[in-house]
Design a protein around this nucleic acid. Structure first.
Lengths: 114, 114
DNA sequence: TGCCACTACTGCGTAAAGCGCAGTAGTGTG
DNA sequence: CACACTACTGCGCTTTACGCAGTAGTGGCA
């Protein structure tokens, strides 16, 4: 299974999650997502998601000069973003639970072992 | 969050899961997925997924006459399908774990309550 | 001082996949 | 005989993740 398809609709949530922890700029969000386990996430996907979320009114944005490269466009959650995060997290959690129950009933082998 | 996006890449797994439990025809698979909690899954999505999986060599197919409607095209897992199921289930499980850990660190409120 | 690596972001075109909807058929009911 | 329910197919749309190219700023190195 191509894990890129698994991200559909979930990358928003992942980005909201890292921004909820602390404000970040694109390049930084990419790194944090990769460190969190989303090793294959494409940078263009993250930048696109940030722009989309910003356009949807979920993020604040401010530019900060950097002394080790170009300026950085920081993003942070606003009220809309936080409530979107909370609601998306709930949706995801219940969806994941549904999938988990689907997987465990009547499966032929795989005793999902770490 | 539009839950239809969450299905991307996961509907295959869900379909494999219900077929692993027992062979089924399209209409039946739709019903079983909905009963399992995927209330909003579209029938065209399921039929499309079944065709795609069959074309990919993961499913067997046989037609059975029905005395309460048109014939039914049953699908079942073959060896390819079973190993695809096992591998997809593992991928999903680890992906879900990654997401869960992302969600729980540093979130502002939501103690995910049912 | 010219080249390269790393940082940081934007924009474009592509492909995957779920969905709505229309259409085709078979069966049973009023 | 029209209608509802079952069962499946095909078409076009939309969302979204991705690859890639391009633009820029900074610093290291020969």
């Amino acid at each position: 299974m191509d894990s890129s398809q698994l991200l559909k609709g979930v990358l928003d949530l992942a980005v909201l999650a890292v921004l909820d922890e602390r404000d970040g700029y694109g390049y930084d969000v990419v790194r944090r997502l990769r460190e969190a386990g989303l090793h294959d996430v494409g940078d263009a996907s993250v930048y696109g998601t940030l722009r989309r979320l910003f356009k949807a009114g979920a993020l604040t944005s401010y530019v900060v000069a950097s002394d080790e490269g170009p300026h950085r466009k920081y993003y942070g959650l606003n009220e809309v973003g936080r409530s979107m995060y909370a609601s998306s997290a709930r949706t995801w959690t219940s969806f994941a639970a549904t999938m988990a129950s689907l997987l465990k009933e009547g499966h032929s082998d795989p005793a999902p072992r770490s």
